[in-house]
Nucleic acid binder design. Sequence first.
DNA 1: GACCAGGCACATC
DNA 2: GATGTGCATGGT
Length: 212
Amino acid sequence: MKNKLLSIYRKLYSTFGSQGWWPASTPFEVTVGAILTQNTSWSNVEKAIDNLKSRKLLRAKVLYRLPEKSLARIIKPAGYYNVKAKRLRNFLKFFIQRYHASIRRMASVKAMVLRNQLLAINGIGPETADSIILYALHKPVFVIDAYTKRILLRHGLIKDSACYEDIQRLFMHNLKRSGEMFNEYHALLVKLGKDFCLKHKPKCHCCPLKKI
DNA sequence: GACCAGGCACATC
DNA sequence: GATGTGCATGGT
């Protein structure tokens, strides 16, 4: 399994190159994006983030002062805007109260402790929590998403019944813990998922992983 | 017009 | 514990 996961990574990297994730200019912007991108295409999230940026709202305390209704209107292009406004505010409350709106303070906590704290927030599930920990704080946790599961399933590396933590363990127990690599690997899986899994049939001959 | 997107919580059985 | 449903915009 170790060799398999590593050869998939190498093949993806040699095919697609570095993906430059996360596409954001600050760690705080990553956390906002992680919540907004739940079940939503990134292009829609970008519009919502641009709205926040142009209004100079991309700071925790400033954003938290905004009424929920106003926030919902501004992030509308990201879809599910009412639930996401709530979820964002749930995170902001936590971030301000527990870490004084400081990314540095939040990053000083052990990854698994923070993960549990994030999971206790209504609206933050495993993928969002891990995205924040990996892409905003650069700590080595592997992010699992729908593409990752679909790809591993197609290549017979997991069972359909595998849950989020099962798949995460597969990567984390079989690869060297490297935030840099986990960052790239997950982004590459998303790239493969977007470019091939949706446009082609399973195991189609032009998939870069066909011989893996 | 149908289908999909870088999920999650909640209701129901 | 598994399964179904609501949440919503914008691109293909």
